[in-house]
Nucleic acid binder design. Sequence first.
DNA 1: ACTATATTTGGTTAAACATGCAAATAACCA
DNA 2: TGGTTATTTGCATGTTTAACCAAATATAGT
Lengths: 107, 107
Amino acid sequence: MNRAEKAKYETRAKVLKALAHPARLKLVDVLAEHDEVCVCDLTDAIGSDMSTVSRHLAQLKNAGIVESEKHGQMVFYRLRVKCLTSLFGCIESVVKCQADDQLKVLS
Amino acid sequence: MNRAEKAKYETRAKVLKALAHPARLKLVDVLAEHDEVCVCDLTDAIGSDMSTVSRHLAQLKNAGIVESEKHGQMVFYRLRVKCLTSLFGCIESVVKCQADDQLKVLS
DNA sequence: ACTATATTTGGTTAAACATGCAAATAACCA
DNA sequence: TGGTTATTTGCATGTTTAACCAAATATAGT
C-alpha cells in the first residue's frame, strides 16, 4: 500500500468507525426520521448521560455525517448525507446472510 | 431503547466495526477484485505481519463479511456479500461532502 | 447581575483493539 | 518419518474507546 492508497482507506475507515457504535447508529436513525433534533431529545432517545451523547454526536460531526446549528441555548443536529439508508440496507444483508447460515448450522 | 432495538443496533454496529479499519477495507477491496485469495497474497497486499492479517480476516469472517475455505495448506478467503461497493459509494459521498466543506472554509 | 437550562469539556477508569514475535497446527513433499 | 510452508493462536505491550461525574461555557429569563 502506497501513501495515497493508505490515505484513502484511512479516510473511509474514519467514517465507518464513526458509524460503528449502537448509540451512534440509533442517533443516525432518529435524525433520519426527524430532520433536526436537539441534544436533549437525542439524549432521551439513547438513554445515556448527556455528556456521552454529546461526544457521540461530536464523533458523527467530525466524520462529516451530521452537522449542527445552535438556536438559543439548544443545539440542533441534522444529517448531512442521504445515502445512509441504502448503506444500512447493505449492512442488513450481511446480517441476514449470516443469520441464515447460522440457521443452516443448527438444522 | 428496548431490548430488541438495542440488539438491532448492536448487530449492525458489529458489522460496521469489522469494516472500520484501513487494512480490512483494503482486504475487502482486494477480495472484491479477485474473488478468491489466499492469506499469503493478502498479506503481501497489506504489508503487515501475516498473523496480523490473519486476525483481520478472522474479524471480517466473524462479522459475516467473508468466508474461507482450505485447499491444501492454503486458506482462501472470498466475499460473502456483493453490495459492499455501493456501501463504499455512500462512504465516499460522506468523504467528498466533507472535503468540499473544508475547501469552502479555506476559501 | 443572578439563576436556571442546554451543551460541551476535563479527568478518571475499565474494557477493547492492534501489532509483532514466537510457538502451535496442519498439510505437503521427499 | 523428517523437513518445509501456510496459517492460526498465545502472549506482552501500547493505543484507543466508552462511560460517568463534575466542572466549565453559553444563553435565556427575571
